[in-house]
Amino acid sequence: MDHIKKKAYLINTIAVVALYLVFFVLIQTKTMNNYFVGIAIMTCIMIIMAMSLNIVAGFLGEMALGHAGFMAIGAYASASFSMALIDSGLPLPQLVILILAMIVGGIVAGIFGFLIGTPTLRLRGDYLGIVTIGFSEIIRIFFINFGPTGGAAGLKGITRLVNFHNVYWVTIIVAFLIFTLGRSKQGRAIISIREDEIAAEAAGIPTTQYKVLAFSLAAFFAGVGGALYAHYQSFLEPSKFGFMFSIEMFVIVVLGGLGSITGSIISAIVLTVLPEMLRSFAEYRLLVYSLVLIIMMIFRPQGIFGRTEFSLTAFIESLIQRKNVKKSIGGGEAS
């Protein structure tokens, strides 16, 4: 690891810990009440969902409109697993149960991502979009009709294992993993497919394999997000994972900028917190939301960040540089 990289890791780690401490103090001193903590937890879950969708929509550049389906699979799988585990009476600490449940949810969703992705990824563009909608609707209808997980009435009695502290760190870890994926050999292969599939293939990249990899990874992280959602809400109903929820996630990703992880994070925060802030307008809330969406797309169609990432190190460096420039100008005047 060279010097610049080390510095970047150090700065980002400090920033992440500092942000956590701010929230920690706010929660401990009750400045943030349960309502706001709830919003913060939902925001973290939406950040995970948006980042995972960004692997397919941003890195791979394919239209995937069925992300809620994978989230549902992860949620139901992890919830069934944790309920069985707790019923079995093993004396495990809550955090361990949550971690195991997240892994189970992620893996089951990832397997379904693999199974669905393998045949469908030969379709392109809008056709792929509609097929992913189709699969996620089939998944939802399956859960409506599936007795063992409560059917249409929903799955009740999931132990609530998620609080702000663990969801925050999971989000950080997922962000780190997806970010490094984008910089890895595999990630660059996936991005090259987005840029030009034929050229990528000519350069010796097994495109189908990497497409399925991207799709399964996205499904895996969506499953993790679903597991967190299940263990936060402690109640699951199939109607939550409808077509509109997938669209909502897709909107977050496009608004943040396709392929920009930091963009997804910022956009997930804005689009989760904004509707909550507008609650006092009640019925005009979604009207404003949709108007913001239209205006935003007309004036900034590439999203908030486009394809670039916000870099804290570069930001700090530019601040320091500006100070130095000021100093040198000041020095010039003095002499």
Binding site: L291, L293, I294, M297
Partner: peptide, 28 residues
């Protein structure tokens, strides 16, 4: 029309926005 030369996904999101807008307008 303002998005005719923009990336296709932006136009798609706009369409979703219009759809949400009309739905909520009807609700009101």
């Amino acid at each position: 029309r303002p998005l005719r030369n923009a990336p296709r996904l932006s136009a798609l999101i706009t369409a979703i926005g219009v759809s949400l807008f009309l739905q909520n307008l009807a609700l009101i």
